[in-house]
Write a protein that binds this DNA or RNA. Structure first.
Lengths: 120, 120
DNA sequence: ACAATATATATCACGACTGTTATGCGTTTG
DNA sequence: CAAACGCATAACAGTCGTGATATATATTGT
């Protein structure tokens, strides 16, 4: 249930960009590979495998092409994980807003320097 | 703008569990370390550094303790990234729903809860 | 059937990350 | 002030993931 593998899959910038491309339209593996000159064909193939195993993309075969498409369930799993924290940070945001509102009229240039101690 | 480092920080299960603990209350570094017997003290210290540098937690010094707390901005960055896809998968969900609705007469219990609203 | 295309897998080198032990620095306590 | 505590950093070994080259498999076209 926990998206254990999913975050690892998302840790790679190339894979996130692949998802970005797939969010617009489905694409063949080669098309995706061509979009990343820095990645070789086998490299892209393995990235796609990781995304597949993480449940983030789906493949269908079209002749000698393999068309990849985004799988919303995969991303929804991340969203579900995130929702555990949503209550928390909305509360925090509310307090921040209250705080800012309370001194809103004072300082136009928000030059907010809170104290910062030893950072080597 | 892209939470490049953030997803890498979230890729580790231990770090995600740390965030989970911090979502309930702030904790000292040692307290967090004690929660993970499989991780040594320096190990936890470095996990905390990664989370710090990813902007996911914040530290304040309290005597000889270092109290860690969750930083909502960090998780909000993930949420922002995810929101790029939210339109997409809601569309997909809608088609799924239409599809299911079209054969809904057969299955009475509509127990699917899809209440996630986008955060503007 | 053969060649070309499209993609996946095998294998290997390397760099990054995780975990461990040892140590340093600041803080509290007796 | 010295000893103990809390935590961070240093240095190092093992592991995992990524990238590259070479090869295997399947499909289309001639």
């Amino acid at each position: 249930m926990a998206p254990v593998d999913t975050f690892a899959a998302l840790a790679d910038p190339t894979r996130r960009q692949v998802l970005d491309l797939l969010s617009r339209r489905d694409r063949a593996a080669g098309e995706l590979g061509a979009a990343f000159p820095s990645v070789s064909q086998p490299g892209m193939s393995r990235h796609l495998r990781v995304l597949r195993e993480a449940g983030l993309v789906r493949v269908r075969e079209d002749g000698r092409h393999r068309l990849y498409s985004l799988r919303w369930e995969g991303l929804a799993a991340v969203d579900a994980w995130l929702s555990k924290y949503r209550d928390f940070w909305e509360t925090e945001l509310d307090s921040l807003e209250s705080f800012l509102d309370s001194k809103a009229a004072e300082a136009p240039p928000p030059k907010h320097a809170r104290n910062r101690k030893g950072r080597p």
